[in-house]
Structures are given as structure tokens and as C-alpha cells.
Design a protein around this nucleic acid. Structure first.
Lengths: 248, 248
DNA sequence: CGTTTCAATATGTATATACATAATCGCCAT
DNA sequence: ATGGCGATTATGTATATACATATTGAAACG
């Protein structure tokens, strides 16, 4: 592999030329040295600068373009783009992980489990057009002795038939579904809500207390799989989302 | 450009071979035809299947690997990965856009503007180590006649000196900052909160009513730029985040 | 003067080739 | 058996080359 030794005497890392070009340009843009609208050197100029072939430069620039940092125009060149609509990446971990990250013991407890033919509300939540069997689950996630989150879930049994045979007494359906369902799409809705009687009771908070609600609908191969609603007491949880322009 | 005609008699699109390989494999994975753990054909096999060079196949597979859909192992081949921790992309638009998308007239009204030497709280919020001048702003975003969101913002004047000369009476600082600051990083925190006296008063809701709070800290070239807190009455706003496995 | 045409140019896609690297398998010697 | 060693193999990176395509600027033309 043709690698490059950085001139740093102390820590001479070996990174690929591709990576070097990429991070060089990225740095110029993020530092503001090349402001939005600035024309990036032509491929043939970078070819000279880095003493490499055009393909290598092209690959790096294409990647930056795909990441949205630059815009490429035939015959004109490549230009630093105007910073775009803030899009942030929200990592939604398994609740067990989140709780354990707090250094607290995790426990799950099922409250309710009902198998039924999906009613109108079920079908709306799942996004099902035709009626079919669904599994409705309610459970509590604990951090230590305190309720951490209330989970209300619907599973489309037409899509995941085996789920109908599971009891989900001590394991939540989330981890169970992972690994049983292939790559899927998801839509999340995040909002605030006042705790109703049921919720307040389950979470051991006052009725009307503010809660953070995260709802997730999941599809696999175009078929609805599950709808889940997590309700967190306001104090217990903050979502964190990061935006970093195209790490690559 | 070497393009490929799809065999579809009706709508013969011309897409690049690269794109075709990419979407073919993507489809196989998302449909579950190639479940997690499945070994993808070797590059030389795909080379045969698509009758193209290894470079073309390699580029496509590398892209899928970068997107996290597959994992590549030297000497062993490429494998479909286990679906990862759900990471969703959260689009955070300008509030004006959001309001206008609702078909309501938008208006911004400044409530307060204070220039001061950053106190301890300011510095914590901004992530500033040294003291320095800051601009503190409070304003209301209206959708029609109803308050839509309360904005509380700090701007690090050491990073954006010109902001000190702006009044921000009728335009919010957000749109003003875009275009004046180069590409930046951001961290968002999302939580629920009960409205305090001030907030309830400004938003014309009951004290204690649930609110959705979005806080954003922004850095440009490692320097803190601004900290902003948006407070939405629970009814007025839902954040939507999507996860789609690697559109490319 | 406006319009059309054409050549120049930067990027887009693909090929064939080459060698590096990491991981694995099987062989061999202990 | 077992531990090490080298050959094999699939991927990783890079090159030189070729031609396609979109766009621009200038020349040619009416």
C-alpha cells in the first residue's frame, strides 16, 4: 500500500494519501480558511500538489461532495458550499445501555401483554393498511429502584410471527427484535407531554409532570414491523445529537 | 460516460454501473434476502456478474462498508453487518421555515438584549474557558398570533464580533449567524421541562405546563460561537428524525 | 447585434494493472 | 498434538489511461 509518513518527527503516523487529501481540505474548510463559495484547486492542481494521480484526488473530492461540504461543477471547478440546514445525528441506544452507562443496575418488568387483531388505532400507529394480528406490550425500564422509562409497544405479527410466542417478561422486545429483523428503516417522533394518570402511576411521578416522549416506527423491506413509545420523566433523560461536518 | 440501459422496455433509465451495483446489493440486504452475517460475493465474482472491472465493484463495496451496511475482512470477504445502534438523522430547520410550513405567518420579536462580560453561567453554557464579552438575547417566535417558541441565546463576541453591533429586533440571530460563520460543529440536547414563571408568561401557557427544550451549542474551528435554547410548548412541536440505511 | 456553433475544459465514470497488507490455511518440524 | 512458517487469497490503495458529459467562452455567422 502506498502510504505516507507524516513529517512529524515524534509520532509518524501512516495514513493513506486519500485520507490526507481529505482531511487537509476538510480542515481548510472548517477553519474558515476556505470560506463558502471559495473555489477549491482543480483536480489537476491537487494532482501536482500531492504528487499523485487524478483518480486519487477525484475520489477524495467526490467524497467531500457526497458529504455535502463542497459542490462540484463541470467545467467550473469545485466550490465550498454554504453551510446547510443543521442536520444532527441522534444516537438512540438500547435503554439497558443508557442505564448501565449511568452506573445503575438495569431491570425490565413487563406490565401487560395482549395479543389481538389490530384495531383501528393499532393500524394507524403501525401504518398498516390491512387488519392483522398484533402484539401489544407495556413494560417498565428501571434504573436501580427508580422507573426510568415506560415502554408501550406494538408488534406487527404478520411481519414477525415468532414474536407471538414470546412472553417478554424480563427482556424488552427491543433487544429481542434486533438480530431477528434485517436492516430496517425507522421514523422517530420526539415531543414533550404531560403525564396522564396511567403514566404517572407507572413512572411514580405526579400526574401532569412533564415527560419526554420518543416514538419509533420501524419498517423492514417496506413492511411495518413495530411501533414503540418510550416515555421518560423529564428529569431522567436528555437526548444528545451531534453534528460534525462529514467525518468522511 | 459508460452508462447502462436497464432492460425495462418502458422506462429505460440510464444510471451508472456503480449506482446499479450499489442499489442491487443494498436492496438484497434491506429485503432480508442477504441477512446479517451473509457473505457477499467476492469482488471477482461481482466483477463477472456485472461484467466490469474490480475497481468499480470495489468502489461500490467500499461505499457500503463506509455506510456501515457491510463489513469487509481481508482474506475472508465481505459480510452483511448486524443492524447497528439506531442512529437517526434529525433535521433542525430554521423556525421561520417550520412555521411557514404550517401555513402560518411568521414573526420574531425581541424581548431582551444584553451585552456583558460573560459570567460563570454564560461561560459554562458556551463552553468558554476564559472570560470575554458575550451577547445575551431573548426573543419570541410567533406562528400567527400564538407564541411558537421562546429563544434564549448567548453569542460569544470574541468569535463573532460583528454580532455586538446588531440589534436583532425583528430578525432572530440564527439566520443572521448562518452565512457569517463558516462550517461548524454542533451539539444538541433535547429534553422535556416544566414551564417556569418566565417561560409560561412569554409563551402564554400555564406555569408547570410541559415544554420541549432544544439546546444547541455551536463551535467553529474549535471556538465556541453560540449557545441557544429553544423552548416549545408541548403541543406546538414534534421533532422528527429518520433513519434510512445508507442511501449512498 | 444577437444567435448559433464549436472547441476547450473540468469533472464523471470506467478499465487494466500493480503492488501492499492482513488474515487464513495447510504444511512441516518439533 | 502443536506451534511456527510460508503460500494463498481477498481486500486496500494507487497509477495511467480512456472516453463521456456538461458547461463555458469565444469565434463564426446571419
Amino acid at each position: 500500500m502506498s502510504l505516507v509518513e507524516t513529517d512529524d518527527a515524534e509520532a509518524s503516523e501512516t495514513i493513506s494519501l486519500h485520507q490526507r487529501i481529505l482531511s487537509d481540505i476538510r480542515e481548510k474548510i472548517l477553519s474558515g480558511a476556505w470560506p463558502p463559495g471559495h473555489r477549491i484547486p482543480f483536480e489537476h492542481e491537487l494532482t501536482d500538489e500531492y504528487n499523485c494521480s487524478r483518480m486519487t484526488v477525484n475520489k477524495a473530492l467526490s467524497q467531500l461532495a457526497k458529504a455535502g461540504l463542497i459542490e462540484r461543477r463541470r467545467r467550473s471547478g469545485s466550490f465550498v458550499r454554504q453551510p446547510q440546514s443543521q442536520a444532527a445525528v441522534l444516537e438512540l441506544h438500547d435503554i439497558r445501555i443508557e442505564v448501565e452507562a449511568l452506573g445503575l443496575p438495569y431491570r425490565y418488568e413487563r406490565l401487560e401483554r395482549v395479543k389481538r387483531r389490530g384495531n383501528a388505532e393499532d393500524r394507524t400507529l403501525l401504518g398498516l393498511s390491512a387488519p392483522g394480528p398484533v402484539l401489544s406490550l407495556e413494560g417498565l425500564h428501571f434504573a436501580g429502584e427508580r422507573p426510568f422509562a415506560l415502554e408501550q409497544r406494538l408488534i406487527n405479527l404478520s411481519a414477525v410471527a415468532e414474536a407471538g410466542d414470546e412472553e417478554f417478561v424480563e427482556i424488552a422486545a427491543g433487544p429481542w427484535l434486533i438480530g431477528r429483523v434485517p436492516w430496517s428503516e425507522a421514523e422517530h417522533r420526539i415531543r414533550a407531554m404531560a403525564a396522564d394518570e396511567n403514566t404517572a402511576d407507572a413512572l411514580d411521578i405526579d400526574p401532569g409532570a412533564p415527560c419526554l416522549v420518543v416514538e419509533r416506527r420501524t419498517w423492514s423491506a417496506e413492511h411495518p414491523v413495530t411501533h414503540v413509545r418510550f416515555i421518560y420523566p423529564a428529569e431522567s433523560h436528555t437526548l444528545v445529537a451531534r453534528f460534525t461536518p462529514s467525518q468522511g
